[in-house]
C-alpha cells in the first residue's frame, strides 16, 4: 500500500462519513441525489462479488463491507426514513440514471478482460462508477447553492479517484506493473467529470465564499 492509494481510500471513506454526518446531524438529505446513491450501491454490489471467492486482506474485506453497507444505508434513509426523506429534492433529481446502468452494462459485455460473470460485473462496476456522479452534479447545478457538507462530500468523492490514478502511476514505476486499461481510462473519465466542480470548489475556498455552481 503506497501513500497515494492510502490517500485515495481515506478520501473515499471521508466522503462517506461527511455524507452520513450531514444526514445524521441535519436530518436532511437536501442537495443529495438519490440516483447517484443508488448507482453507487449498485457499483459496490457488482464489484465486490469477489467477497465470496477471494480473500485479499482484513483491510480490503472491511472496506468493501463498509462501502456496501454505507451506500445501502444511505439509499434506505433517503427512501424510507420518515424525516430524512421529506427533504429529498425529488423534483430536481430527474436524471435518467437507468440509461447509465444499461449503457455501462452493454459496454461491460463488449469490453472486458475475460468472459466470466465476475469479470463482466467488475468491468460494469468500473464503467458505472465513472459516470455515477452525473445525477449529483446535475442536481447541484439545478439547485445553485451548495451547502457546506454536500460540497465537501462531492469534493472528497472526486479526489479519491484522482489519488488512485497517482497510485497507478506510482505502481507502474515501482512495481513495473500497469494494472488494467479499463481502470485507467475509466478513472481518467471519472476524474475529468469533476473538473468543473473542482474549479468552483477551489475558487470558493480561495475567496472564502459560499460554493455556487453557475446554472
Amino acid at each position: 500500500m503506497n501513500i497515494f492509494r492510502l490517500a485515495g481510500d481515506l478520501t473515499h471513506l471521508i466522503s462517506i462519513l461527511v455524507l452520513l454526518l450531514k444526514i445524521y446531524a441535519t436530518k436532511s438529505c437536501s442537495g443529495i441525489s438519490l440516483k447517484t446513491q443508488e448507482l453507487y450501491a449498485l457499483v459496490f454490489l457488482a464489484r465486490y462479488l469477489d467477497l465470496f471467492t477471494d480473500f485479499v486482506s482484513v483491510y480490503n474485506t472491511v472496506m468493501k463491507l463498509v462501502f456496501i453497507g454505507s451506500s445501502l444505508a444511505i439509499v434506505w434513509c433517503m427512501r424510507m426514513h420518515r424525516i430524512v426523506k421529506r427533504s429529498y429534492n425529488r423534483e430536481l433529481d430527474t436524471f435518467r440514471h437507468y440509461f447509465l446502468v444499461a449503457g455501462s452494462f452493454v459496454l461491460a459485455l463488449v469490453v472486458h478482460e475475460k468472459f466470466t460473470l465476475q469479470e463482466i460485473f467488475w468491468a460494469f462496476s468500473i464503467y458505472l462508477e465513472a459516470v455515477a456522479i452525473l445525477p449529483q452534479l446535475v442536481l447541484l447545478q439545478r439547485s445553485g447553492n451548495v451547502d457546506n457538507l454536500t460540497g465537501q462530500y462531492v469534493f472528497f468523492l472526486g479526489a479519491y479517484r484522482a489519488f488512485y490514478i497517482l497510485n497507478w502511476i506510482y505502481r507502474y514505476f515501482t512495481e513495473q506493473r500497469f494494472g488494467r486499461w479499463i481502470s485507467w481510462i475509466s478513472g481518467l473519465v471519472q476524474t475529468a467529470l469533476y473538473a468543473d466542480f473542482f474549479y468552483y470548489y477551489f475558487m470558493s475556498w480561495k475567496n472564502n465564499a459560499k460554493l455556487q455552481l453557475p446554472a
Binding site: 481510500d9 477471494d54 486482506s57 480490503n60
Partner: peptide, 10 residues
C-alpha cells in the same frame, strides 16, 4: 493473474 490486475485495490 489476479496479482497482475491489482486485485488488491478497491
Amino acid at each position: 493473474s489476479p496479482k497482475e490486475n491489482f486485485h488488491d485495490e478497491l
